[in-house]
Nucleic acid binder design. Structure first.
Length: 707
DNA sequence: GGTATAACGATTTTT
DNA sequence: TCGTTATACC
């Protein structure tokens, strides 16, 4: 046993303290024996607290070593929160050894450690959604497909969901052949998809890049096929905990079965009533599956709600009762008293709705309510516009969650593309983005010739240029190739210079240098000027500067050891730039402020967001707007799941259960949308609730008419 | 290689 | 309605 291991097993917090303040059912779950367990945790019932306490309990009571525990979440935000909360109980060493991460970073860590065995070249990069779309587009154009008929993004997302079902391109091709054989018609689209998928798979391999779904699928395949590696993980992960289990898809489920060994235990926490991502592949029936397939699953139910008043919970309970496909029926009980009645604003039209909500917020503000305690939620992003206007008019500050993300901006993506080709010269997707940006007279003709060479030699475009360079320096080179090289030589020299400079300076200095040398700074500041953008207001030039700051901040956090450079299994020390690029595609935390750090609002303001984005959050005052037919439930039929009505109901349920003290539900009888005037009226969900309380004297709501 | 014009299409979103 | 995007055309 090493010194580290001794430290590792030292008890950290005393047991009574961990269980202190928990209610009986929470205590039961936290102190569960070492076994497989399913915790069904209703909204606001302290699910994260139970998970955190359980981990601490495993270490202090069962003497499980921190390094033998794996906690998995869906979002980085949730992972970060969990690590922070656990960190308050554990010593630094335990916290360091514990794996508390998203599914994707967990898998990525394994893939980095076993890159070769997984069929990857170390240093592979992650292809984000934009990159994926542009690659699919490139493929479809090459295959002479009509990208108007089928949008590349449509195929891209279908490829992702195939991967999430564990289906590879050749599996899919076989299935398509079978369908073609049995059902002669209507196979056109899927035949095309099969072609695109197989080309996509091939190019990703060539370019040494993996998309999000690939990270999971490759890990599953690695563990499936390599029993030695699988056994190491089984040995290591004795206790596995999963948050938001209702959001797992089939590949994630399989991953869990592969990570858990015969002697491991899996504890999953979830709420089927809050499953709102099935359109993205999430399958809450995994909860039932878990119960039926894992051995001896203990079940725990948390239904005491610490968040909301009983009136709010009654609304939620009444609504969700209409769902038939629930895994576990639960009725949320609160301990915060009855509270005030839920208001249903019945508005003449959307303008009235917007003004009424703004007016109500104004009066809360006048009562001294903190604006950050207020949220305006809506089903669709485009509904935010009217509320923005009304709030602006009333001079009430607000933030919108989930606008355009910093790293998705064109200028940032271009800068990153330059960085990517320096780390991974096989990344043609990145190269094609910037080979002629800023313009350097490398048009489609030149690019085509380069791609012909790269196809011939089955190498990347940069490698093709390298090859050209060598060939041209030899005496009797063909004339066409000489002229071709002369057109790209300036770019090639730039590439070489960047490559060598990269090694001589600090990363953020290098990025700054790169932006100057490539001419991106000049290019974008000119563009800003042309469009009359003031230097300050979100100019692209400024954003490039923010990128440099962000890199600087990243460097500082690496120095402080905050970013885990995995020391176990893999002895390889990652290139810092690779690490940065991976980090921002996988862990980019949304908005970034002018200092390059994760954004927190410096002043008090109202929160505007979709109901989806509000999951996991809570606010004292919540307005759910546009609670109308065709909007909620949405009139659009989902492509895959046919239970869309139940999912929409769960979505409304999630919205309602965000509110702690006061809830306003509003709808408009008439709405101008996309220039057209439409009559909509109350959501069927409102009608259902009203009907349920028809003969009741104790209605949890009141209807307020606004004209 | 940049600009004008037409055409399109518009749930939800994390990794 | 409004923003993005592909295409045609200098």
């Amino acid at each position: 046993m090493s010194d580290l291991d001794l430290l590792d097993s030292a008890p950290v917090a005393d047991e009574s303290k961990i269980l202190e303040g928990l209610n009986d059912s929470q205590k039961e779950a936290v102190s569960s024996p070492l076994c497989n367990a399913l915790i069904i945790a209703g909204a606001g019932t302290g699910k994260t607290r139970v998970l955190v306490s359980r981990i601490v309990y495993l270490i202090s009571h069962y003497q499980v070593k921190a390094r033998n525990i794996l906690a998995v979440t869906f979002t980085n935000k949730a992972a970060k929160e969990m690590r922070e909360r656990i960190g308050m109980y554990l010593n630094a060493n335990d916290t360091h050894h514990l794996w508390a991460n998203t599914f994707h970073s967990t898998c990525l860590r394994l893939l980095r450690a076993y890159a070769t065995q997984a069929g990857l070249t170390p240093g592979f990069l992650i292809l984000d959604t934009d990159g994926q779309n542009s690659l699919v587009k490139r493929i479809m154009l090459d295959l002479k497909m009509d990208i108007k008929e089928i949008k590349p993004s449509e195929f891209a997302s279908r490829i992702s969901s195939l991967k999430e079902k564990g289906m590879r391109a050749d599996d899919f091709q076989k299935r398509v052949n079978y369908i073609k054989y049995t059902n002669k018609k209507k196979s056109g689209t899927i035949e095309k998809l099969a072609l695109v998928y197989s080309a996509y798979e091939r190019i990703c391999n060539q370019e040494n890049s993996v998309d999000f779904a690939e990270i999971l699928l490759r890990t599953v395949e690695l563990l499936r096929s390599n029993s030695a590696i699988r056994e190491i993980q089984n040995e290591r992960f004795k206790e596995i905990l999963v948050d938001e289990f209702q959001d797992t898809n089939s590949i994630q489920y399989e991953l869990l079965t592969l990570l858990a060994g015969k002697n491991s235990h899996v504890m999953v926490v979830g709420d089927d009533d809050q499953s709102i991502y099935s359109w993205r592949g999430a399958d809450y029936t995994n909860m039932k599956k878990f119960l039926n397939t894992f051995p001896d699953v203990h079940q725990y139910l948390l239904s005491l709600n610490y968040r909301s008043t009983q009136n709010i919970l009654d609304m939620a309970n009444t609504l969700i009762e209409k769902n038939f496909e629930r895994v576990m029926l639960k009725n949320l009980k609160g301990n915060n008293g009855t509270g005030s009645l839920v208001s249903i604003f019945k508005c003449a039209n959307n303008r009235v709705e917007e003004l009424s909500v703004a007016k109500e917020i104004q009066s809360l503000k006048d009562q001294g309510v903190k604006l950050s305690d207020i949220a305006v939620l809506y089903r669709n992003n485009y509904l935010s516009f009217g509320f923005e206007q009304a709030l602006t008019k009333a001079k009430i500050p607000y933030v919108i969650y989930g606008g355009q993300k910093f790293f998705e901006r064109a200028e940032i993506q271009s800068a990153l593309a330059y960085l990517k080709i320096l780390v991974n010269k096989k990344d043609d997707t990145a190269l094609l983005r910037i080979i002629n940006l800023p313009a350097r007279k490398i048009g489609p003709k030149v690019v085509e010739s380069l791609r012909n060479i790269s196809n011939e030699h089955s190498c990347s475009i940069i490698e093709a240029i390298e090859y050209l360079h060598e060939y041209v320096s030899s005496s009797d080179a063909a004339k066409e190739l000489k002229t071709l090289y002369s057109k790209v030589s300036a770019f090639y020299n730039l590439y070489l210079e960047l490559l060598s400079k990269k090694e001589t300076m600090r990363l953020h200095e290098f990025v700054h240098h790169m932006l100057t040398l490539t001419g991106l700074y000049a290019f974008y500041s000119e563009k800003d000027a042309k469009e009359g953008k003031s230097e300050e207001d979100n100019s692209r030039y400024k954003n490039l500067g923010v990128l440099v700051s962000n890199v600087k901040e990243f460097e500082a956090s690496v120095d402080q050891g905050e970013v885990s450079v995995d020391s176990e299994n893999s002895a390889k020390v990652e290139d810092q730039l690779t690490l940065y690029l991976t980090n921002i595609t996988l862990v980019s935390g949304g908005e970034i402020n002018e200092n390059g750090s994760a954004e927190t609002m410096p002043f008090d303001c109202v929160n505007l967001m979709t109901i989806h984005a509000s999951k996991g959050l809570e606010f004292k005052y919540v307005f759910i707007c546009g609670f109308e037919s065709e909007i909620l439930p949405s009139s659009r039929k989902s492509s895959s799941g046919d239970n869309s009505l139940e999912e929409e109901r769960r979505l409304a349920y999630v919205g309602i259960t965000r509110a702690k003290e006061q809830l306003v539900i509003s709808y408009a009888n008439a709405r101008t949308m996309f220039g057209k005037n439409e009559q909509k009226g109350a959501s069927s969900f409102i009608n259902d609730i009203v009907e349920s309380y028809e003969n009741s004297k104790n209605k949890p709501y009141k209807i307020v008419t606004k004209i």
